[in-house]
């Protein structure tokens, strides 16, 4: 009996593969075409590019194109900044997004929810160039909003924001949260919506308070979403939001110690050289490190909780 059942199960598994594969086929084809076919561009990272010879014909240059990422005292600073900011964004961003999502969800179907949701989503629609202008409007020394309309009337000394390193880690984190809070909270809101209402009802019958429900039910139920988002963020940990670190600090040299990231370094360094091989090398290096990290993190998640691993 047992054997027979197993056999049937096995058979049903095999049968299932084809229809399911068929459903996913359009997506798989798209991903293959859009992402895998152009993968040959990776060669550029190891080539001394020459327009006459083309991608395949150009001379191999080994790891020469990668050298510029390491042969600088900035290597440490830019790596540190890139990683630390990403860690901060992951942690603070997640906490705030969940907080906002819970608040929004608990409001129910009220009209106010619509307003709140649109309001916090709106900053995401602005490009970094424009956000750079906005931040400048608040911070510039001569006519900025904070100096002119807040510090001056209060009789406090004006601050030269763009040459003062200390506040910048906070400014960058605040701007990042400001821009992404809305989008991230919506992901969590959808996840909360997916929680079985019965669980809450049962808890309520048991006399659990609202805060208890949030900490004992809602947040634990969000764990899979948190894990998956964090894993994906870890993969991008060597990448930085270029606009945030370049446009927002107005490219101010005084702030490089806290605003230089791998992407801004590469951009500044290659602006004049315009070297396709070196920029390909930088991207490949960033991806590679992220890949190693995410594969390890994923292996760890798999060991503890295989359901929620990425792959």
């Amino acid at each position: 009996m047992k054997k027979k059942k197993e056999k049937i199960e096995k058979k049903s598994k095999l049968v299932k593969t084809w229809p399911l594969l068929l459903i996913s086929l359009p997506g798989l084809i798209y991903i293959f075409v859009n992402s895998y076919i152009p993968m040959f561009g990776v060669f550029l990272a190891f080539k001394d590019y020459n327009y006459v010879k083309g991608i395949f014909g150009s001379d191999w240059s080994g790891f020469d194109n990668f050298r510029f990422l390491f042969k600088t005292r900035d290597a440490w600073i830019m790596t540190r900044n890139t990683v630390l900011y990403n860690v901060a964004f992951i942690i603070i961003g997640t906490v705030i997004a969940i907080f906002v999502a819970i608040l929004l969800f608990e409001m129910g179907k009220k009209l106010r929810v619509k307003f709140f949701q649109s309001a916090i989503l709106l900053p995401n629609m602005l490009s970094w160039v424009v956000i750079g202008y906005v931040v400048y409007a608040f911070l510039n020394a001569d006519s900025g909003f904070i100096n002119n309309s807040i510090l001056k009337p209060l009789g406090m000394e004006e601050i030269s924001w763009y040459s003062n390193i200390k506040p910048w880690p906070f400014i960058l984190i605040i701007v990042h949260i400001w821009k992404y809070m809305g989008v991230n909270s919506i992901i969590y809101m959808a996840s909360i919506a997916g929680i079985d209402k019965g669980i809450f009802e049962a808890a309520e019958l048991d006399g659990a308070s609202k805060t208890m429900q949030i900490f004992r039910i809602t947040i634990p139920m969000l764990k899979p979403t948190i894990i998956i988002l964090t894993l994906m963020a870890i993969g991008r940990i060597f990448f930085s939001d270029f606009g945030l670190f370049y446009q927002v600090p107005q490219n101010s040299g005084r702030l490089f110690d806290v605003t230089q990231t791998i992407d801004t370094y590469v951009y500044r360094g290659l602006m004049q050289l315009n070297d396709v091989g070196m920029s390909a090398a930088a991207a490949l290096f960033q991806s590679f490190v992220g890949f190693i990290l995410v594969v390890s993190a994923n292996a760890l998640v798999r060991k503890i909780d295989s359901e929620n691993a990425l792959f």
Binding site: F68, K71, D74, Q260, Y265, V266, R268, L270, L273, M278
Partner: peptide
């Protein structure tokens, strides 16, 4: 080229 990228970054800093 390697030195160029590093030097350019230092220049834009100072």
């Amino acid at each position: 080229k390697t030195e160029y990228t590093a030097v350019t970054n230092v220049i834009s800093q100072f």
